[in-house]
């Protein structure tokens, strides 16, 4: 139980995927102009990260390891993730059109989101079991969502009212805000559940 709790806390706050591991930066800067799109992206990423953790763990444990094909990990994982995203898209389109409308446009972007492949590889590296992998995937996604929604709300205000030097407009000032956020999250590093 403690391990589940410390994994969750670690993934959401202490080792936040974006702000301390830099995984998933492209969507972080790309889809963070509005709070609702950021929220949608966060939901989609959390969903895919959880599912991908489960599927890649099964593949790694029951296919790659017994066959001694550990070196095929990256290739196998990225193919699985790409297929999984495709299936989710088809499934949502057919059976949950409302959810599809909300998440659909983000799904293709997720294949190349390094947070998803990153979580799959880290699960193997850290030797997590099935449950721990899923928890790490889902909470990692929640950490992503927390960061991107906070960041989007900062950017909305930044665009509306902040004045800054011309050459800092757009991405540079966003990066500097992200820097301040990362600094704030650094404060969590003292937390630790033994």
């Amino acid at each position: 139980m403690t391990s589940i709790l410390s994994i969750s806390l670690g993934a959401i706050l202490i080792n936040n995927f974006i702000l301390s591991q830099f995984l998933g930066c492209c969507p972080f800067f790309g889809v963070s102009k509005k709070i609702d799109t950021a929220f949608g992206m966060g939901m989609a990423v959390t969903f895919v990260m959880g599912l991908a953790s489960a599927v890649t763990w099964l593949i790694n444990t029951f296919v790659l390891m017994p066959l001694g094909l550990g070196f095929m990990q990256t290739v196998a994982f990225i193919l699985v993730i790409a297929t999984l995203v495709q299936f989710i898209e088809m499934f949502l389109m057919k059976s949950m059109p409302a959810l599809y409308q909300a998440l659909g446009i983000f799904l293709p972007l997720i294949t190349t989101n390094c947070a998803v492949l990153g979580v799959a590889l880290q699960n193997v590296q850290k030797g997590y079991n099935f449950l721990e992998s899923i928890v790490y995937g889902v909470t990692g996604g929640l950490g992503f969502m927390l960061a991107i929604v906070l960041f989007a709300s900062i950017r909305e205000r930044l665009d509306a009212s902040a004045e800054c030097p011309k050459c800092f407009e757009g991405v540079p000032i966003a990066l500097i805000s992200a820097s301040l956020m990362a600094m704030a999250f650094l404060g969590f590093s003292g937390m630790k559940i033994w």
Binding site: F22, F168, I173, L175, I176, A178, S179, L180, A182
Partner: peptide, 13 residues
Amino acid sequence: PAGGFLTLGCIIA
């Protein structure tokens, strides 16, 4: 990490 974002922001500016 904070310094990474800061440096990249300044370089892009």
